[in-house]
Design a protein around this nucleic acid. Structure first.
Lengths: 120, 120
DNA sequence: AGCTTATTTCGATGATCATGGAAATGAAGT
DNA sequence: ACTTCATTTCCATGATCATCGAAATAAGCT
């Protein structure tokens, strides 16, 4: 079962993604998979000063979008996919109760397909 | 085909959703379907003063998440599902290139399913 | 034209957020 | 205990954002 989400925690998650650097960090972690990446590697890959990076990682972590685990002297960060799914599910909750919602062209995979994939 | 998205426009979209009132507005419009809702109905349903609502609707509109059309003397707002899909697709782009990304429990529909549904 | 209703713009105020260097903390290893 | 390396906290500054009443705009109706 997918975790329920309160509106305020969805706002926190969205706010944490609504920043150029944090979005880049999150996407990098999504691509890195469950192995994740140490803070230092992220700083180097994205060219962000350590103190700023730490601030942003803490932000994403507080919002629940990234996890943290220690390995040797490094802190490894990972994207939290379940949380991401919960967020998207929350956004699309009760999609189109009134009518069909796909103004999409044929062949497009749009909101209805998305909802099906996530909430069933 | 799903629209490509630049990082900066994804940030705009996320920032526009990262606010309690705007998130409520967007979700209400998602539920309203393609018929949408006039500004006045939104204000009444959510108890937001007109001037504030107008500010938030403009914000969402600038970010491309809601559309606007006139009908009589009312302005009807609608959620843009395609834009939403593009945003989610952008977040999950190249998900887990390094390894499997589902730490999810059996039965959960997680990121990999999401990606499949969106990008193929 | 004049009236009514729906919605937006203006504007000032208070609040929150991002930055990055320098110093502090934490964990290993010798 | 000491050194080293990785990361975080502190702090002051500048910048951006949210609020909502009142006035302005825009559209339709008679």
């Amino acid at each position: 079962m997918i975790m329920e989400m309160k509106s305020s925690s969805a706002v926190d998650a969205l706010a944490s993604l609504a920043h150029e650097n944090r979005l880049a960090i999150f996407r990098l972690l999504v691509q890195a998979g469950k192995a994740g990446l140490p803070a230092g590697a992220i700083a180097e890959r994205l060219g962000i000063p350590n103190s700023s990076l730490s601030f942003h990682l803490a932000h994403l972590n507080r919002a629940g979008l990234v996890g943290q685990k220690r390995q040797g002297r490094s802190l490894i960060y990972t994207a939290d996919y379940a949380r991401m799914d919960a967020l998207v599910g929350f956004l699309m909750e009760n999609c189109c109760e009134a009518a069909a919602c796909a103004p999409a062209a044929d062949g497009d995979v749009s909101a209805p397909a998305l909802r099906k994939g996530l909430t069933t």
